[in-house]
């Protein structure tokens, strides 16, 4: 089953939790880093890269011998990726969404599509034997969702029961691409007004998508019931609460993970995955 780890706001400890979940469930889970603009999981896992694969999109190319400079492709392109200047058609690959509209509309059959690299998937084996798959978008390309979709389609090294997905922060199109068709979502938040505000946005998005989720509250400081009150009122489950702890922050600063400080959480992190089963 696929479990996405998401959060409305960055810096809530989403990556940290994803890494800890992988450690606690090493023999039965793998991790996909779908935060393709800033994939950071690899910084916290000792691993060996065992393979790379390019992510490609079909991008149009114009055959100048057939092109009559009629401009129909410029008109058809909704992404402003084509222009006619002098006596040539210029296509800007990084703006192309690969819809195929220009090739379809060209009355002279002058446009053909070819695969072009827009990102990369790298496959690693971690020291704990689990698999890490990292999607990285090439800087300057617009199609982050395409790289995320490719990462989710990549075949596992070996079949394991749980696929964990570290999603990009926020609720924009990249978030949707990462969490859609998951079986369950963990929403990581922190017990602050910012955390609550951003949690509400993420919840709204997940309710729209009709995805089941549970809340994980991180960095609980002082006596605040901010998140618990909201969750109880709305009837949303909270599955784990992690207190604010300077040691966790220091360990993270050294590239360590949650379980290094709180090994007792291992059992809880295993149960978390079991509870997702319907």
């Amino acid at each position: 089953m696929k479990i996405a780890i998401a959060s409305g706001k960055g810096g809530t400890g989403k990556t940290s939790l994803a890494v800890a979940l992988l450690h606690a469930n090493a023999e039965r889970a793998r991790l996909l880093d779908c935060d393709v603009e800033e994939p950071n999981c690899h910084l916290f896992l000792s691993h060996t890269v065992i393979g790379h694969k390019a992510v490609e999109l079909l991008i149009p190319q114009v055959n100048p011998n057939l092109c009559k400079l009629c401009g129909k492709c410029v008109e058809a392109c909704q992404f402003n990726a084509i222009a006619i200047a002098g006596n040539q058609v210029m296509i800007f690959n990084e703006l192309c969404h690969s819809c195929g509209g220009c090739a379809r509309i060209c009355p002279h059959g002058a446009i053909q599509e070819f695969p072009v690299k827009i990102g990369e998937l790298s496959q690693s084996r971690c020291k704990n034997e689990a698999e890490l798959l990292t999607g990285t978008l090439e800087i300057g390309h617009a199609s982050a969702p395409a790289v995320i979709k490719a990462a989710k389609k990549a075949l596992p090294l070996q079949d394991v029961p749980f696929t964990l997905i570290d999603s990009p922060p926020g609720t924009a199109c990249t978030f949707v691409a990462a969490v859609e068709d998951s079986d369950f979502v963990f929403l990581v938040t922190e017990a602050t007004p910012f955390g609550l505000n951003d949690l509400k946005l993420a919840v709204e998005a997940l309710l729209n998508m009709e995805l089941p989720f549970a809340i994980i509250v991180n960095r609980i400081q002082s006596e605040t019931n901010l998140i618990t009150d909201y969750a109880n009122q709305q009837g949303f489950p909270i599955w784990l609460q992690i207190p604010e702890d300077r040691h966790i922050a220091e360990t993270y600063a050294r590239g360590g993970n949650l379980l290094d400080v709180k090994p007792e959480l291992k059992k809880v992190l295993r149960e978390l995955l079991d509870r997702c089963q319907p």
């Binding site: 509309i105 729209n208 998508m209």
Partner: peptide, 13 residues
Amino acid sequence: KQSCEGCKVCVDA
């Protein structure tokens, strides 16, 4: 609505 990227291919076709 969420998946449509607004390429207009279907509208024209």
